[in-house]
């Protein structure tokens, strides 16, 4: 059974802060804020790799290429939807 969407978003925010060593309260990250933009968290390509590893190791979902990753990493909401869809489809 998949996790409730809000719980999954909370887990993702916690993972972002812990793995990327962000100096921000996980609760302060907005669901729809862009992850890779100065208007959002301002992550870079090094963070992207760490995020790929985090999603794989902590959420059990693989991100195989940049095209998929760039869509999934648009925001916490987008990443939660991507992870949920992958879990539902058993990929």
């Amino acid at each position: 059974m998949s996790e409730a969407p809000q719980d999954l978003k909370v887990r993702i925010k916690k993972m972002l802060v812990e793995r990327l060593k962000l100096e921000v309260d996980p609760a302060a990250i907005e669901d729809d804020a862009p992850l890779f933009s100065e208007q959002g968290l301002g992550l870079d390509s090094i963070d992207a790799l760490e995020l790929v590893l985090g999603v794989e190791q902590e959420l059990g979902v693989r991100i195989d290429d940049e095209e998929v990753g760039s869509k999934a990493f648009a925001s916490v909401s987008a990443l939660a939807a991507f992870v949920d869809e992958r879990i539902q489809s058993g990929v």
Binding site: S45, A48, L49, E50, V52, L53, I63, E66, G69
Partner: peptide, 10 residues
């Protein structure tokens, strides 16, 4: 190789 994404690899 622990992981990779685009041009980056750990």
């Amino acid at each position: 190789v622990r992981g990779r994404f685009g041009r980056m690899a750990k």
